[in-house]
Nucleic acid binder design. Structure first.
Lengths: 144, 144
DNA sequence: TATTAATAATTAGTATAACAAGCAGTTTGA
DNA sequence: TCAAACTGCTTGTTATACTAATTATTAATA
């Protein structure tokens, strides 16, 4: 057989991009004025208060330079703010502004609906398989 | 339950990036001097001659601006070249240079080995499920 | 305690990624 | 046959991704 693993990698990459691209297009059409990655950060901040940038980066699986820029953009949109960490002057606590909170609460149900489209026709059992297989791949690669 | 579809999207995105990132690190360590995306293009050119950029873009699932830039880089590395299309002066045929062919033949077996690591512990049945589920997602989103 | 090591965040450089706009060349159709 | 529509490619802009290097601060240790 010819390069099946490369084909799987390509399929994985392509699917992840399709999902993100689809969501991004919906975000744009509906005038959300945030990107998909910015949304991930907003949602995380809504659910967990008092995180510094490194912790936040871990939770959304981004590296710290990438997160720095996302936070810059969110701050310039007035949705988040950096607060000095009370005990470590190297750190910032990132938190939602009142506008940021409002944004999350507005968008949450709409985004749930958008996400649903990707998973149409898949059932409980498929989700279990999906999680199991992708988690296996992640574990294979994280043991470095 | 809370936001399962968003979690699946995040897992998908994260896994795709892990796979790519792992491969990219190996490429670097082994001194391949090409990126993963550049490799995809090289392999496609090795297997299919006489493609123009649009056809090539379709095969590697990238859009034409992205492909233009990848080809620019590959040409500047001396691995590919643009040849005027004999029948359509808007088009270029992209092809491997002799150095490009050598590169593909050198890298192919090593990359097969790298790809294998991600799929460790998964069997035939898992691959079928993987393909089925990801293909379903792709179809859900491509019907726009 | 004086260094050294480690950590949090930023900055810089290169490579994708998506989309929009533009140009040149080709095809269509009245 | 000529103007409109279309196609192939490029360029510009913004955002994300990864690496490496830098700065400021804190922790560790000889």
């Amino acid at each position: 057989m010819e390069e099946p693993y490369s084909l799987y990698s390509l399929l994985l990459d392509r699917t992840a991009r399709s999902v993100k691209q689809f969501a991004q297009r919906q975000f744009k059409e509906l005038g959300f004025n945030v990107t998909v990655d910015q949304w991930l950060v907003l949602r995380q901040l809504y659910e967990h208060n008092g995180l510094n940038q490194r912790e936040l980066a871990e939770r959304v699986f981004k590296d710290t330079p990438t997160l720095t820029r996302i936070i810059d953009l969110l701050c310039s949109k007035g949705l988040t703010e950096r607060v000095l960490h009370p005990e470590d002057r190297r750190s910032f606590i990132v938190q939602l502004t009142p506008d940021g909170v409002k944004k999350v609460e507005q968008l949450k149900p709409q985004i749930r609906a958008i996400r649903l489209k990707a998973w149409n026709g898949l059932g409980e059992e498929d989700f279990r398989e999906f999680k199991r297989i992708l988690s296996t791949i992640n574990e294979n690669l994280s043991s470095i």
